[in-house]
């Protein structure tokens, strides 16, 4: 049995009286691409946000490569994690946001070298070389000196993907990467994600509303609703003939709307 790359163990997150994540459990294997689907506001984005430590969790443990992430081992028990511990494990995760969140005061290249130089301690020349390779890979080789305001939404999101890759993560999180894009730009971003999935060994976690894309690239699809993973399985199975009633309703609505 292989060690799961990511493991959610009864993770709970509350906002006041509202329980967004209700004791969720999920194991993701190395190199697996898992897609999370579900109604808006169901909290599926929160799954990624707590994994990226953008939100704290109220209960439960997240493991990365078998190591507790939000906690650390102290003797036999689990103690609250130190900042150094979190930073060490967080370095294995990269995230792509719905609204890109590029740094507007930096060029595309500077966006991609700021963190490698600062957080990984790379020499500037090396960081630039690697950023150029990545920008080339996402098809933006000529636009390295453009500022985010001078790029289209699709180009910005591709820079954001290059920026996340520049940190050499093992895990990639995509939070509705195409939801803020004009329809004609969705394809170019999906193509980059598709290439990443086929040619690299990243463990990927994707939240999306693009059902066709989920079916095509995922190893596994999870339906998330009301704070829990209600149903999961291979894409053909879950998207084709869901067993759960809520999943069936959701999918029929989504497919109707297309």
């Amino acid at each position: 049995m292989t060690q799961p790359k990511i493991k959610f163990d009864r993770v709970t997150k509350r906002y006041g009286p509202l329980t967004v994540l209700n004791q969720i459990c999920l194991d993701i294997d190395p190199g697996e691409l898992v897609t999370i689907i579900g109604p808006s506001g169901s909290g599926k984005t929160t799954v990624l946000r707590v994994l990226m430590t953008l939100e704290s969790i109220d209960d439960g443990v997240i493991y990365i490569d078998g190591e507790p992430f939000n906690k650390m081992r102290a003797g036999g028990a689990l103690a609250p994690a130190s900042n150094a511990h979190i930073r060490r494990l967080r370095a294995r995760i990269g995230m792509v946001f719905q609204n890109f969140n590029l740094f507007p005061h930096m060029s595309a290249l500077d966006n991609c070298i700021e963190a490698p130089i600062h957080s990984l301690g790379l020499a500037r020349g090396e960081a630039v070389n690697r950023a150029d390779e990545l920008l080339d890979m996402v098809g933006l080789a000529g636009l390295r000196s453009r500022y985010p305001s001078q790029l289209s939404g699709g180009q910005q999101q591709r820079v954001a993907i290059a920026r996340a890759l520049a940190m050499q993560p093992e895990i990639l999180l995509f939070d509705e990467p195409t939801s803020a894009l004009d329809p004609e730009m969705v394809g170019e971003v999906l193509q980059v994600i598709r290439d990443l999935a086929s040619a690299h060994s990243y463990t990927m976690l994707l939240v999306t509303h693009q059902m066709g894309f989920a079916r095509e690239v995922s190893d596994r699809v999870c339906f998330f609703d009301a704070g829990q993973f209600v149903e999961q399985g291979p894409p053909q199975e879950l998207l084709g003939s869901p067993k759960n009633e809520r999943a069936r309703q959701f999918l029929s609505k989504v497919l109707e709307a297309r």
């Binding site: 990226m52 430590t53 953008l54 930073r87 967080r90 370095a91 995760i93 990269g94 995230m95 946001f97 609204n99 969140n101 590029l102 740094f103 507007p104 005061h105 700021e114 963190a115 600062h118 957080s119 920026r163 996340a164 940190m167």
Partner: peptide, 27 residues
């Protein structure tokens, strides 16, 4: 400064002080 900027910096493992000086302050 939009919250997403801070989140992006966290996701890139940038330390809080560096984040303030290089990401938040210039904006």
């Amino acid at each position: 400064v939009p919250k997403g900027q801070r989140e992006a910096a966290t996701a890139l493992n940038i330390k809080p002080l560096h984040r303030l000086v290089r990401i938040v302050m210039p904006q």
